[in-house]
Simulated assay, not measured.
Amino acid sequence: MKTVEAIKDTNQILLMKSFLKSRSSRDYCLFLLGINTGIRIHDLLHLYVHQFIAEDGSLYDHLMSPVHLEPPVYLNHQVQQALTSYIEEEGLSLNDYLFKSKRTNEPISRQQAYRVINEASRQAGICEPIGTHTLRKTFGYHAYRKGIAISLIQKRLQQSTPSETRQYIGVANTTLQIKLDVNL
């Protein structure tokens, strides 16, 4: 099995997002949730609509999941917009899988998720090995670059040690220029 890397170039991320958005709102949401939350692909594929939307139709600002409590999974504005559009466009009900197959009521397979991510990466000109773990690694890498404490990233990625997390996100042997910019 090949080791995959984080997508470190934000321009490549933008190209992937653009490709996926033009192709499928489901695939676009999968990519956005993956790179913005760091949730494992198995967990992503088994999320239900009711974990994002209340019965009154309002969107939660955090994922309602008993598995992802510490720290809670925040749904940023971009993710919320994509989810709202996708759920409305597809007419998904609260009890549907969020990433349900077009042919069945089951979630898409891990292999299908891999194909989606891989095709988008090729369209963005990425030559490095890409896989489903790329989403988590990309989340961790960019969170670290933005100054999020490695201990919080470690908790989100559910890893044992900070050094394991640094290795996983590809920053173990590099010195990154981190900006702690409050931007008040």
Rank of each mutant, 00 (worst) to 15 (best):
L75N: 07
P129L: 04
I87H: 02
G147H: 06
I148C: 06
G91C: 09
R156H: 03
L83K: 07
S93W: 00
E90G: 00
A113V: 08
Q81P: 00
S101Y: 12
E119R: 12
I126M: 04
P71T: 03
Y86T: 03
P72S: 13
G131I: 04
F139G: 03
R145L: 15
A124Y: 01
I117H: 00
V79I: 15
R166A: 15
Y144F: 15
F139S: 04
E89Q: 15
Q159I: 10
R166P: 00
Q167D: 11
S160N: 13
A149E: 14
L92R: 11
C127T: 11
Y168R: 02
K100V: 01
K100Q: 14
Q158G: 07
P129G: 08
E88Q: 11
P72Q: 10
N105D: 13
A124I: 08
I150Y: 09
Y144W: 10
P129I: 01
G140I: 03
I117R: 00
Q111F: 07
S109N: 09
K102R: 15
Q81K: 15
G140F: 04
S93M: 09
R136Q: 10
R156V: 13
L135P: 03
L98F: 10
R136C: 05
P71V: 04
Q80A: 14
I126H: 05
H142F: 04
Q80S: 15
G140Q: 05
P72M: 09
Q123E: 13
L98D: 03
S101N: 15
S160A: 14
T84V: 07
R103A: 11
V116C: 04
Y97A: 05
P162K: 09
L98S: 05
S121V: 02
I153G: 02
I150D: 08
N95K: 13
S160M: 04
A120K: 02
K137I: 00
Q167A: 12
Q112A: 12
F99G: 02
A113I: 06
A124M: 03
I117A: 01
I148V: 15
L69A: 10
C127P: 00
V116Q: 01
K100T: 01
N118D: 13
S121E: 01
N95V: 00
G140N: 07
Q123A: 13
S121Y: 00
K146T: 10
G131F: 07
I153H: 03
I150H: 09
L94W: 04
Q167H: 11
Q80G: 12
E128Y: 01
N76H: 13
R110A: 03
E88R: 13
Y141H: 05
G125I: 12
S101L: 12
I87T: 01
L98G: 02
Y144N: 05
Y168D: 00
S101H: 13
L135Q: 02
Q154M: 15
P129A: 13
H142E: 04
K146Q: 14
Y97L: 06
V116E: 00
Y144K: 05
E164C: 04
L75P: 05
A149K: 13
P71Q: 03
R122Q: 14
Q78M: 12
Y144E: 05
S121W: 00
N118I: 03
K137S: 02
G91L: 09
G140W: 03
Y74C: 04
R110C: 01
Q78H: 12
S101F: 12
T132E: 05
I148H: 01
G125H: 09
V73Y: 08
F139A: 04
P71A: 03
N76V: 10
